[in-house]
Design a protein around this nucleic acid. Structure first.
Length: 544
RNA sequence: GUCCCCUUCGUCUAGAGGCCUAGGACACCGGGUUUUCAUCUCGGCAACAGGGGUUCGAAACCCCUAGGGGACGCCA
């Protein structure tokens, strides 16, 4: 009886296999029709990928993450990996940020074949230097009516949006300037009236495109806004510059964060307007905070420099990023970038948003230190980290006046070489400040520091003065919790100079640690504090 | 609010219809090694979001629901 059942089962299996096989070949023949123009590994087309960071802040681990996968994919197909600076936001882009990002990626070993520093045949690789190119291309779209001038004011647009939101409609441009005659546009332009250029978007139907990782994605054109392509400062927006540059730089595969899925139809439309081939899209999952929201510096250290300053080694950091959404086929967890490239398969990326888990990174970093560094290498790496001249230059003036022997240095300045400090509530006991006061001071300090225009001594000092003034405390009292949180002691070298030397990321991490030691801030309390903080924000220390 | 994406241990993940009584790693707990601790090592805890379908057979394919996330800027 059993034998019969088993034979039946076997028969089913065989039939199923044949049917599946036929289905499979059918499927692949269908998918060829919708397949993008570029076949990975094909001799015909050279694979080219890019990372396109915006130099508006600290080098973000998310940038490194996306860079890693782009670079892997290109290298694996003997293609090229390009770095392009997207600095079209003139108000936020800075040269320092650009340098920092380039250095951070290099530190991780993620170098590029073409970029602003090493050049290449498709330069310049900085969008701020490509204005003529965008001008030329936008004129094409204006000429054939696929783009139009818009003179609407920000106030009017805000009103329209508010109304649409209230009516539960998808907010978007209402087409107000679409009906302007050529003559009228010309007159207003000649009068020097401020304007932008928007793209025309179909009013109905849907945009169907293929994402390599997710398959077919359909988005109604009614969901797509008449995106601004050229701003009133005559610089392009991301959407426009990105498409023009990707085409001119012959990018074949656009591997980027999931946050771009909804704007992909705009990009595809632009490719079509220009009559260009559309690259293949791969939308990677977003790195997450422990609460699953998109990784943000408010909740988690996101700067690559933070990880460097905390004494992580680049091999471990990049290895860790490689295991976000991806695994080696054999399950190995420790691997170099080159090993990853050898076994890389972008189709094995898993799509759930990976939580950036510092604990596991710590374990991996420790494993590297133990297994990949012999005593000699460890000694050298540690010395380079701890006695980094740039860092030391800031620390020595602080401690020199206060030591009598070299043996005094570590007890006094050891906190410069530490990660988090071993603190307890007792460390925050103070004759006039309650623990609750300290907690509030630390939280306000944290928020103020985050809003500083730059991490420089005078700004930090100003913020502390303001904090003391707002709380009607002597500066000495207001700084007390900061001393404990940052240096580990109530009495130490200048805490303002110390924070300046430690950098915002490490300072932020210490303030957060201290707040947690003091019981943390509950959601309810955070709301209350935020309210108070608004008063603080508008507080003028000069006036009082 | 509208649209889009996603969903396997607390976390990172393996999984391509039968190799699944769901595997590995971090974290956690316990044993061994170690003068302590750490390392190392052995073991343990722990998951297919829910409901329908398709199938001889579903973690896997389809549908619905729920939950999470993202996007909706003259930011990128």
């Amino acid at each position: 009886m059993q034998a019969i059942t088993r034979t039946g089962q076997l028969l089913h299996v065989i039939i199923r296999v044949i049917v599946d096989w036929q289905m499979h070949s059918l499927k692949s023949s269908v998918s060829v029709c919708q397949k993008p123009l570029y076949f990975p590994g094909s001799i015909m087309t050279q694979v080219r990928t890019r990372i396109a960071p915006s130099p508006t802040g600290d080098p973000h681990v998310g940038t490194a993450y996306i860079a890693l996968f782009n670079r892997n994919f290109a290298k694996q197909h003997n293609g090229q990996f390009v770095l392009r600076i997207e600095d079209t936001d003139q108000t936020r882009s800075t040269a320092k940020s650009e340098t920092d990002i380039l250095n951070a990626l290099k530190w991780l070993g993620l170098d590029w074949d073409e970029g602003p520093d090493n050049g290449g045949p498709h330069g310049p690789y900085r969008q701020s230097q490509r204005s003529d190119i965008y001008r030329e291309h936008i004129n094409q779209l204006l000429d054939n009516g696929q783009a139009f001038h818009c003179f609407c004011t920000a106030d009017r647009l805000n009103e329209v949006r508010a109304e649409q939101m209230a009516n539960k409609q998808t907010p978007g441009y209402d087409g107000h300037c679409l009906s302007l005659s050529k003559e009228e546009v010309k007159t207003r332009l000649d009068n020097g009236e401020s304007s932008v250029i928007r793209m025309r978007v179909p009013t109905d139907g849907e945009c169907v495109f293929n994402d390599r990782l997710r398959g077919e994605i359909r988005i109604n054109w009614s969901q797509i806004d008449m995106q601004v392509l050229m701003k009133s400062d005559n610089l392009p927006t991301y959407h426009f510059a990105n498409v023009v540059d990707d085409h001119l730089m012959e990018i074949t595969h656009v591997i980027r964060g999931e946050e771009w899925i909804n704007s992909t139809p705009k990009h595809i439309l632009l490719y079509q307007h220009f009559g260009w081939d559309v690259p293949e899209f791969c939308h990677m999952p977003l790195l997450r905070n422990p609460d699953k929201s998109k990784l943000s510096k408010r909740k988690n250290p996101t700067s690559i420099n933070y990880y460097r300053d905390m004494g992580y080694v680049p091999e471990a950091v990049v290895n860790y990023l490689g295991m976000m959404g991806w695994t080696m086929p054999d399950g190995r967890e420790m691997f170099s970038v080159d090993e990853m490239i050898d076994h890389f398969d972008i189709d094995r990326v898993s799509l759930g948003g990976p939580v950036f888990d510092v604990e596991k990174l710590n374990w991996l970093n420790g494993k590297y230190l133990r297994e990949r560094f012999d005593d000699e290498a460890f000694m050298q790496a540690y010395a380079e980290w701890a006695f980094n001249p740039d860092k030391l230059k800031m620390v020595v003036p602080l401690i020199k006046e206060r030591v009598e022997r070299f043996s005094d240095v570590i007890p006094l300045a050891g906190f410069f070489l530490s990660g988090s400090l071993p603190l307890s509530e007792a460390d925050f006991e103070h004759k006039s400040l309650q623990l609750e006061d300290s907690r509030r001071l630390l939280q306000f300090a944290l928020w103020t520091f985050e809003g500083l225009p730059a991490w420089e001594r005078e700004h930090i000092s100003g913020a502390c003065q303001k904090l003391a003034g707002f709380e009607s405390l002597k500066i000495r009292e207001a700084l007390f919790p900061l001393f404990v949180a940052v240096t580990g002691k109530a009495v130490s070298v200048s805490v303002i100079d110390s924070m300046t030397a430690l950098g915002l990321d490490v300072t932020r991490a210490r303030l957060r640690d201290a707040i947690n030691v003091l019981g943390g801030v509950s959601k309810k309390e955070a709301k209350r504090l935020e309210k108070q903080y608004r008063d603080f924000d508008s507080f003028d220390p000069e006036a009082s």
